[in-house]
Design a binder for these strands. Structure first.
Length: 428
RNA sequence: GCCGGGGUGGGGUAGGUGGUUAUCCUACGGGACUGUGGAUCCCGCGACUCGGGUUCGAAUCUCGGCCCCGGCCCCA
């Protein structure tokens, strides 16, 4: 094979595309019932859009190039920045809150792996100008409802708040906060411990920090955290906000969350509530979604406005469904096959196919000049539910024959009744 | 970028200590079968990832590239 697709990219064939379209359509449907409207931004942007917010890790993975005019451009590695750019360009004076969603591919130059590709799809949303914790709660509830709607069951939504840990770090007046946050995000407790040992500050801060990042559980863990944070006003305030968020979430009908104060997230622009969704069993790439509240718009020079968003790693959602062995309700490719019994019946077959298609019925007929016997076999392979047999003998009496491929029963039908009959059978 | 495992017709595979025409299943095209399918039989089509090395001879041994799979890093 001399022609190969680029490393880390995929071709999707018929069945897989059907599954992806089903999931995409279902998720869009959920987003739209929450009042989100779709937007679409360019596949490439000015490189500076992605360098401005200094996600250093992402910089190494960016596909960038110069166009013929010498402009530095980049294939988008993520979609939050383009959406923030769009907001600043066009939407600042639109009534708040603004609810937008998107579905599109992103590109990162990394080592392909299970659930990781160089071109991958994200389906996500941004809610700009809502007030915490109501907006955050609704966003997280929507994420949960989305997954329920596509039939995914074994996911976990972990919710944390960066304000709590930052509150401690600030009160401890620690330097190298970024490094510490990175270690927390990584979940590398040993490395974090040795890092903290090198830092000069009161031991009590270190203890609290190590204590906090281990906190994981349902509502009941809030009580102990509250005690731990008694003497730390900033962190306590964040904790109260987190509790209010849980109230909101429960009233929006989702209570199966996990409070996890060890979530930090890689991107620097997150500020308050953060959440991640995991599906265990996906291996190293178990995270199917991540999001939270961020201040990217301010970073880009817009007026400060509260924004919350998240994105599903669409490919990982598909992988999770596959692993869960879900059978998705997929549409048939072909409902009806119109089979000319002999070559002279070709035009009559085309006429019938045309009428069925204009009624919106997926119809196939013979374009390969197959013999009649092969046509039935072919119709069977296509999964057609009905075959219309168009033959000279029937036609002399103004009939055709409709064969039900499941039951093998067939009936003669007057030519002018065929379309109506099939429409009513299929729509039933 | 680093570490490990792989790459044989469209899909799935056998062969692997070097030696005739590279095995089988499936799919595909045709026929047995000129108005009845998913059965059977026959015929056909079609592959050793690419390049170098060792050798009389390489799918097989060896080196390198490319790609795939898994892990690290990072992330979705």
């Amino acid at each position: 094979m001399e022609l190969q697709k680029p490393r880390g990219t995929r071709d999707f064939l018929f069945e897989e595309m059907k599954e992806r379209k089903y999931v995409e359509g279902t998720l869009r449907g959920v987003f739209e019932t929450y009042g989100y409207q779709e937007i679409k931004t360019p596949l490439f942007e000015d490189l500076s859009l992605f360098t401005l917010k200094s996600g250093e890790g992402i910089m190494e993975q960016i596909y960038h190039f110069k166009d013929k005019g010498g402009r530095d451009l980049a294939l988008r590695p993520e979609l939050t920045a383009p959406v923030a750019r769009l907001y600043i360009n066009q939407l600042q004076k639109v009534p708040k809150p603004i609810k937008m969603y998107y579905f599109g591919s992103c590109f990162r130059y990394e080592r392909p792996q299970a659930g990781r590709f160089r071109q991958f799809w994200q389906l996500g949303c941004e809610l700009i100008g809502g007030k915490s914790p109501d907006a955050e709660g609704e966003v997280i509830a929507m994420a949960a409802h989305s997954l329920e709607k596509i039939g995914l069951t074994d996911f976990e939504i972990h919710i944390g708040d960066l304000g709590i840990i930052r509150g401690i770090l600030n009160q401890a007046q620690l330097e190298d906060q970024d490094q510490i946050m990175a270690l927390i995000d990584k979940g590398d407790v040993e490395e974090l411990k040795s890092c903290l040992e090198r830092v000069e500050t009161d031991q009590k801060y270190k203890d609290i920090l190590l204590n906090l990042i281990g906190v994981q559980g349902h509502r009941e863990v809030m009580e102990e955290v509250r005690e731990i944070l008694e003497d730390y006003p900033d962190a306590s305030k964040s904790l109260q906000e987190l509790e209010r968020l849980l109230d909101v979430l429960e009233s929006f009908g989702f209570s199966n969350y996990v409070v996890n104060l060890g979530i930090a997230r890689g991107l620097d622009y997150y500020s308050g509530t953060v959440f991640e969704i995991y599906v265990h069993g996906l291996g190293a790439q178990k995270q199917i979604s991540g999001g939270g509240t961020y201040n990217l718009i301010e970073v880009f020079g817009g007026e400060k406005v509260e924004s919350t968003g998240f994105a599903f790693g669409f490919d990982r959602v598909m992988e999770a469904l596959k692993q869960q062995k879900s059978t998705l309700p997929l549409a048939k490719t072909v409902e009806v096959f119109v089979a000319p019994v002999s070559p002279e019946m070709k035009f009559k077959s085309f006429e019938i196919a045309d009428k069925l298609r204009k009624e919106g019925i997926a119809t196939e007929t013979d374009l390969a000049g197959r013999k009649f016997k092969k046509l039935l076999s072919h119709a069977n392979n296509l999964g057609a539910r009905y075959v219309v047999l168009v033959g000279a003998r029937d036609l002399e009496q103004g009939h055709v024959t409709i064969k039900d491929m499941d039951s093998s029963l067939q009936e003669q039908v007057a030519l002018e009744e065929v379309v109506n009959l099939l429409v009513s059978k299929i729509r039933r």
